[in-house]
């Protein structure tokens, strides 16, 4: 464990909690892409299959459980509890265009052709594109509540911090996980234009992000 990874996990947790609380307290999921949240729940499900088979640390187990519970709870809030506020007309990204290539690639490019490893690889590739329905929805509606932009900021920051963690681990222990690093770079690049808008608009105190 290093400071970059710890900050990354905290940033990830903050993002997930921000989103859950925003929906739970405002009793509305307006502007939120349910499709992205389903993809994130799928990412955690396929990545944390070893939750019951291999114990790594209390921290590892607790964080996996928290991520799984909060992501499924968020999907529940969007599609069941507050489904009347779910804007399905704006959440139209064709997720099959993500799932099929990601599934195909995880069979082609992985470290070990076993179910656990292929599902882990699937979760890594899927996570790098899971935010696209949400970013697409924002470009389609042309705006996002500021709380949603804070969620996206911490979510994008988390993988950027993981990139720093991999640079650090490469230089200190020679560790290099090419699949995770390449996917992490792609994932973080998708946030770049959002980061620019976030810094230039939201942090200037605008109530919400409106796209030009």
């Amino acid at each position: 464990m290093n400071v970059f990874r710890l900050l990354g996990d905290v940033s990830h947790l903050v993002a997930i909690i921000i989103l859950f609380l925003k929906i739970f307290r405002s009793k509305s999921c307006a502007g939120i892409s349910g499709k992205s949240q389903v993809l994130f729940a799928l990412v955690f499900t396929t990545r944390y299959l070893d939750l019951f088979t291999s114990f790594i640390s209390i921290y590892n187990t607790v964080m996996k459980v928290v991520f799984l519970v909060l992501s499924y709870a968020t999907v529940y809030l969007i599609y069941l509890r507050f489904r009347s506020s779910y804007d399905s007309e704006s959440d139209t990204f064709r997720v099959e265009f993500l799932l099929v290539p990601v599934a195909g690639l995880s069979f082609l490019e992985n470290y070990d052709f076993t179910p656990i490893e292929i599902l882990w690889t699937f979760s890594i590739y899927l996570e790098s594109v899971a935010i696209l329905p949400q970013l697409f929805m924002i470009t389609k509606t042309g705006e996002a509540e500021s709380i949603t932009t804070h969620y996206l900021f911490f979510l994008g920051l988390y993988r950027a911090l993981y990139l720093a963690n991999w640079v650090w681990r490469y230089h200190t222990e020679g560790f290099f996980d090419q699949i995770a690093v390449v996917s992490g770079v792609v994932q973080t690049i998708f946030y770049c234009d959002f980061f620019y808008l976030y810094v230039t608009k939201v942090l200037k105190g605008n109530s919400k992000l409106t796209l030009p």
Binding site: K64, Y111, E117, F175, D177, Q178
Partner: peptide, 10 residues
Amino acid sequence: AMMSRSHDEL
């Protein structure tokens, strides 16, 4: 560089 994944990262 090693090509492996870490099992302790989230």
